[in-house]
Design a binder for these strands. Sequence first.
DNA 1: TATATATGGATAA
DNA 2: TATCCCTATATAA
Length: 286
Amino acid sequence: MPEGHTIHALADRLTRAFGDSPVTATSPQGRFTADAALLDGRVLEDAAAAGKHLFVDIGDRILHVHLGLIGTFPVIPITDDKPPDPVGTVRLRLVGQEHYADLRGPMVCALIDLDTREAIRSALGPDPLDPAADPGVALMRIRRTRRGIGALLLDQAVVAGIGNVYRCEVLHRHRIDPFAAGTELTEELWWTIWADLVRLLPLGVAFGQILTLAEQVREAEQLVADGRAGPITRSLTGERLGDYFERRFATYQRAGEPCHRCGTILRGEKVSGRRLYWCPGCQTRH
DNA sequence: TATATATGGATAA
DNA sequence: TATCCCTATATAA
């Protein structure tokens, strides 16, 4: 269930649950046994996200995790004196003093060196959750291709961390035709998209769910302003206590239903392998 | 039991 | 564009 906000929140949870203390590392599933042994007993120094990539410094090793489409990495408090037996297919289990974390179904789980991490990072476009990100890099890459903006937003070399939900929803929020060519996207419109992503993604981190409907965004921002965001919906460790907001979107998985803005029937079609949801009635901006 | 689907992405053709 | 990988869950048969 991961777009960039999920990985950034996960990095934060791992750091808070295990930071600066030793962890035991095992591979109950058996596919990561030898590498887990290299991490076992070492200190987890830091966990950080870049787009949808997670990097965890353990001892002098770097653990690289990418959850892909189906991966999960819940960090859970230890309630008895030791963690329960693993349930399902656990590639990697980390255990600290008060928490344990089970990694299931990752697309990538590997130990890498500094150069590899740098290569992965440098291949990514700007990440809206990175305060140092340069959105101009994305604009350059958008303006030199005729590929549609809908496809470009999913390209991690253009923008890092955006997935299928955010791309569909942000295009609808600004009435943008997903098939508008990158070459014809105005600079002003790109700044609008970027600013909106910088606004939306942190709400996704704070609430543990993607919020894009105007009224939900407004309420979420008010809760943040009141200092009530974050632990509302999830414990420190990401244990799911239920979503604070009802799960609702303007376009995502609403093909065949009417657009709440103009009434046109929404469409959902595979575009370059992923299902794109959009409103042909009001998403006409180029 | 089998199949479809999922907030992703690499690789083959 | 098609196929494959990773896993869990929902729905169909």
